[in-house]
Write a protein that binds this DNA or RNA. Structure first.
Lengths: 365, 365
DNA sequence: GATACGATCTACATCGATGTAGAAAGCGCC
DNA sequence: GGCGCTTTCTACATCGATGTAGATCGTATC
């Protein structure tokens, strides 16, 4: 494979001049630049990244450490991070930790310090007590709410506010007995805790008393099946409610399914809200109202913060940034909104959604 | 950061000796090795990957080019590839092409030739006519069925056989009118085509005549909603059928939903089969019988083949490898299988499944 | 005691791009 | 004619690990 030397020889200049051309050094005659570019083309020259990295002390690669790609939220987040990183000329390696404590600590041990310029880390096993482990000697940006006020830059969303808004939406619709699916008493700090707080805050502001029979704790697993079971228990216990708030979409979808199964009408009898705005929410029947956590913004912000750290710019202290959430209101709370044309169909609407491209929707293979 | 020289000085040996220790060179006195290891520990030395790569001409990184991480199949495949690569000491960068032709061609242009040792490529936009583009000068392994007999190593599953087996399973249950969801007449070659072929082969072997009213073409998008719509059209048209074969799981799940909604019993009135064995199939109600395409095997095989090419071993000609599929039989075709204990529940069974870890199931965040 | 050989270690060049320092050429100006 | 300045380009060392060639020291062999 051709090297910079080869190009230089062919263009009749020094290797450094080729380097200068490629790096946009200004003091180069147009004729020289043209000769160099021609030589590059003719030889099909491509720069050796390893050599450049060795010189520069940078690799142009960042790591994204997440629990698992199989979780839709993280898959979609990864897509967004890869895209954001690409605009900076960065490549991303994804490091699935499995949410295993040991492997999360390994991420922080810097085993890949030399491979990557920085790390974006979304812990699942580590908690507030592990904040000290975050004092590492490489650029690090933290995601999520497991470690609220650690010593590093942190991007998250305002879960409390988002959860409060989702609850408020239900209150605004006149619902007064709102069941919760997803509480997790065993948790020291995390998603379940903050989302419950938001829910309680909304109730309190509305002057509604907390009713613990409405708050179900399906455990740490937040699959459809747990949502379904929790809903079944509510129904079996004859608890009365007119709305359900699932702390993530899969819980909500599981609950939705059991509701319909049991003959309830959604949203007439029971309104349902989820959280995360995974793609499936648009395709459930009825489509599920959900909180969009600002995935894209989180991804971009995390990459930007990391870039500043890598570049040595940015303030001394750590930063906390909250992405903007939005509530995506769909039929599961407000019912069929008859459009002017008034098309009728059993399946959910098919309008193009900005985040749905043909590809996104392509075959499962 | 400490270099090999620093370690060498501290241990009182030459840099090369440190290198030899780290690379398992056999002729080293135990005492020397110990001193070196001690020095490494004391200095917290970590090897500079860029330098090693420059010397070795390898990077230890491979690229995985896929359409989108948001598609569950590819997310799960990526997880598997990352894991398989890790056992070889390789790191994976994922390159989402969006299924866009241009970006797929860019993958083959070798823009990252110097960053990665090889590429595993699952095309979506490219087809059989593009086979020539696959003649690249870096190690490449192809996945999927878009380009059946290209000039490079190829790992796929036997879609025809798998599809035939799924159909046969329905035939074995006594079903004779099997509706298909997922045909795609516009396709030159691809998943829809080969799976339809398998279906037709099974019918023919059973002496059942093809009935085109049973074969629906929901288009290139294979979401739940398309499955639901296709099923609705079948019902509206009063087509009679006793089984449904969805060419992927989301199509099947959408169809399943409409079936239940319309009052059909599954599987008593209609048996349903999907394809891909995505995690959700275990959590639908009833759980969905589906073809497991051998994801893990595909991932491992692809990495192995690539390793051979990178290492320069392996035969001259290209290889075609078909991963073993299995049919995961669940309630959507055979109904509730009463276990000896005979527990009864509305929700799907909760037995631990080897592929479901607590993490895999953890919160959506 | 000389030779051969294995075990153990080292010096040095090398991979390819780039930072540093400075050379060469052209131009304006006193 | 000499000085200073800008533009354009080059030589060389350097980043850190490793392949190559070979030095050194024992020990076994005859």
């Amino acid at each position: 494979m051709a090297t910079m030397q080869d190009v230089a020889r062919r263009a009749g200049v020094s290797a450094k001049t080729v380097s200068n051309v490629l790096n946009g050094y200004p003091y180069i005659k147009e004729s020289t630049r043209a000769r160099v570019m021609a030589a590059i083309d003719e030889l099909g020259y491509q720069m050796n990244i390893s050599a450049r990295n060795l010189r520069a002390g940078r690799t142009g690669i960042i790591a994204l450490a997440i629990p698992e790609l199989s979780l839709p939220y993280f898959a979609q987040l990864s897509d967004a991070v890869i895209e954001a990183a690409a605009t900076k000329g960065w490549t991303v390696v994804i490091e699935p930790t499995g949410g295993v404590r040991e492997r999360e600590l390994e991420v922080l041990s810097g085993a890949r310090r030399h491979l990557v310029d920085g790390v974006i880390f979304s812990p699942l096993a580590l908690g507030p007590d592990d904040a000290d482990h975050l004092r590492v000697d490489f650029p690090l940006v933290l995601l999520g709410e497991r470690i609220p006020h650690g010593p590093v830059d942190h991007v998250t969303m305002n879960n409390v506010e988002a959860s409060r808004a989702a609850t408020q939406h239900l209150l605004d619709l006149g619902r007064r007995r709102i069941a919760v699916i997803g509480a997790f008493p065993g948790e020291q700090m995390g998603t379940a805790t903050v989302r419950l707080n938001g829910y309680l805050a909304a109730l309190e502001a509305a002057g509604i008393e907390r009713d613990d029979t409405l708050i179900t704790s399906p455990g740490p697993w937040w699959h459809r099946t747990e949502g379904a079971q929790a809903m079944q228990r509510l129904l079996d216990a004859d608890i009365r409610f007119d709305a359900v708030f699932g702390f993530n979409d899969t819980l909500a979808l599981g609950a939705l399914h059991v509701l319909l199964w049991s003959g309830r009408r959604v949203p007439e009898d029971v309104a349902v809200v989820g959280f995360d705005n995974i793609e499936e929410t648009r395709f459930s029947m009825p489509p599920l109202t959900s909180v969009e956590p600002g995935r894209l913004q989180i991804a971009r912000t995390a990459v930007d913060l990391l870039a500043e750290r890598v570049g040595g710019t940015g303030p001394a202290g750590q930063r906390e940034i909250y992405a903007d959430f939005t509530l995506e209101v769909r039929e599961s709370t407000v019912g069929r909104q008859r459009s002017p044309g008034g098309a009728e169909a059993v399946s959910p609407p098919l309008e193009a959604d900005p985040t749905v491209t043909p590809l996104d929707a392509a075959s499962g293979r």
